[in-house]
């Protein structure tokens, strides 16, 4: 592989301050050898055109800022390798959320759903002097749940969330809901299940599994949702 290569992009552009409507911009950029990830290429591109707007922070897949739709699939720019990506690289904002500018979306609805599941531990017993005990096995139940970075790749790839973003909690929020249901320290199980017992909030999940397919942290919201549904059934009988 030569040290310098030119890469072709097709990028969704929209600046409400000057554009009447969004458009797809064809643009190319010459990469340095150190530009390994899509985010590196976008930073290189921004040096050429400083009006290109995107969120980014940690550049290592843990802050969740740079989620976008990459060649038709949601993902993080910082974890997308430039080696195995088809050109022209087509970048669009995450689907289903209002676009603010370029690939920056308004995530209000996404976070509103996250907040709606009471994403915090509820335990009304007086706090002991030391840590509450939890066995390693009980703690293991939280693996695959607590690692969520709230990037919204999953919820914005979910058709049910597209149709009902105000009513369906969506995969990210439901994964968080199960994270607290699964925590032996949490005491609000029935309150949490009540909160989800609704034709939309939980039951709009039809196990399409787009969420699993796109999660950059390899988490499985569908499985978590299935477990919540099991809990619902078990408490009903």
């Amino acid at each position: 592989m030569s040290s310098k290569r030119t890469v072709q992009f097709k990028i969704y552009r929209y600046d409400p301050d000057k554009d009447a409507a969004p458009y797809m911009q064809d643009i190319s950029v010459e990469l340095e050898e150190s530009d390994k990830k899509l985010l590196d290429a976008l930073v290189r591109l921004k040096a050429k055109d400083d009006s290109l707007s995107f969120r980014r922070s940690c550049r290592e897949g843990v802050c969740g800022s740079d989620a976008m739709n990459i060649n038709g699939k949601n993902g993080l720019a910082c974890l997308t390798s430039m080696d195995d990506i088809a050109q022209p690289i087509t970048l669009r904002p995450l689907p289903g959320l209002p676009v603010i500018r370029d690939v920056i979306v308004d995530m209000t609805q996404f976070f509103k759903q996250y907040h709606s599941i009471k994403p915090y531990l509820i335990n009304n017993e007086p706090a002991p002097e030391r840590e509450r005990l939890q066995s390693p096995e009980d703690r293991d139940e939280l693996n695959g749940l607590y690692e969520c970075i709230l990037c919204a790749c999953c919820s914005t790839s979910c058709p049910s969330f597209w149709w009902n973003p105000d009513k369906f909690v969506g995969p990210a929020g439901l994964l968080a809901a199960y994270r607290f249901l699964a925590d032996t320290r949490d005491q609000a199980t029935s309150e949490r299940l009540d909160n989800l017992e609704d034709p939309y909030r939980l039951f709009r999940c039809h196990s399409i599994m787009n969420c699993v397919d796109v999660c950059p942290k390899h988490l499985n919201p569908t499985k978590a949702i299935g477990k919540i549904k099991d809990m619902m059934v078990r408490r009903a009988v």
């Binding site: 840590e131 066995s135 390693p136 009980d138 703690r139």
Partner: peptide
Amino acid sequence: VVELEHFGMPFDRTDNGKI
């Protein structure tokens, strides 16, 4: 640190359930 545990932080655990 104990406060954080009470806030819900998922610390790893020792065999006897401590942080």
